[in-house]
């Protein structure tokens, strides 16, 4: 049974439908890569799945439970966690307090939190070094790590990750993606929305391209490069035809 199943989802902002009739599934332990151009509807899709935009039609089923249109904070409690783009953390709070707030989505258990914290610190020692620094004083990449760490604290069943590469130095991307890969292998279903397909694709299992709010193509990640090239050639021919 898939951990996350999205069926015929249509959603947008106010009355603007941005995503039309999208279906997808993610298995536990799997990473789905979603690509597409600016404005194609990738972020809107994630926001609709996580409850920030109420879908006008379609459904979101997580672990057999219907979570369509659940408010984002409720969805987070159910184990569906969105990490917003642009490495959004709470800028005036310390790194440690940002991680602490990660517990909001789950049970607050000091022992479990201490263990998780240790785990995060071992992967990203920088978060331990800067534990008492304000989050706003971190670099973009460090903030992204912090945002992911905060999500990790709650151990969600499904992780939705919007453009983890945005504002992140190139050299920081592989450790971040490796962390996500390891995280997924612990049984979490992960969706990564990304523009930088080339760097991200090796860490993912399947890929899906969104164009004009709809699924343009879907394939196993290793085939993505070739499939995209063919699709782009076809588009250019159409535009100049």
């Amino acid at each position: 049974m898939p951990m996350l199943e999205v069926k015929n989802l249509t959603a947008g902002y106010g009355d603007i439908p941005v995503v039309r009739d999208i279906s997808l599934t993610v298995e536990p332990g799997e990473i789905l890569l979603i690509g597409g151009e600016n404005g194609a509807g990738k972020s809107t899709l994630l926001r609709a799945i996580s409850g920030f935009n109420t879908p006008t039609s379609g459904s979101v089923i997580m672990d057999g439970k219907n979570v369509t249109g659940l408010a984002p904070e409720r969805a987070a409690h159910e184990g569906l966690r969105l990490v917003l783009d642009n490495h959004r953390v709470f800028p005036e709070l310390t790194v440690h307090d940002n991680l602490r707030l990660g517990q909001a989505a789950g049970r607050r258990d000091p022992d479990a939190f201490a263990k998780t914290l240790e785990e995060i610190h071992s992967v990203f020692p920088i978060l331990k070094e800067k534990a008492q620094a304000r989050a706003r004083d971190l670099s973009g990449g460090q903030q992204q790590i912090l945002a992911l760490g905060q999500a990790f604290v709650a151990r969600p069943k499904v992780l939705l990750c919007d453009e983890p590469s945005m504002g992140v130095a190139q050299m920081l991307l592989p450790p971040i993606l490796a962390f996500l890969r390891k995280w997924a292998e612990s049984g979490t279903a992960v969706i990564i929305v990304e523009q930088h397909l080339k760097v991200t694709q090796p860490y993912t299992d399947r890929a899906l391209i969104v164009s004009r709010g709809q699924v343009a193509l879907e394939c196993p990640s290793p085939e993505l490069t070739d499939r995209l090239a063919a699709w782009n050639a076809q588009r250019m021919a159409a535009a100049h035809g």
Binding site: F52, P72, A76, V83, L84, L101, A104, A105, A147
Partner: peptide, 8 residues
Amino acid sequence: DAARAAGL
């Protein structure tokens, strides 16, 4: 938004 995403 980030607060809601975090489940607050």
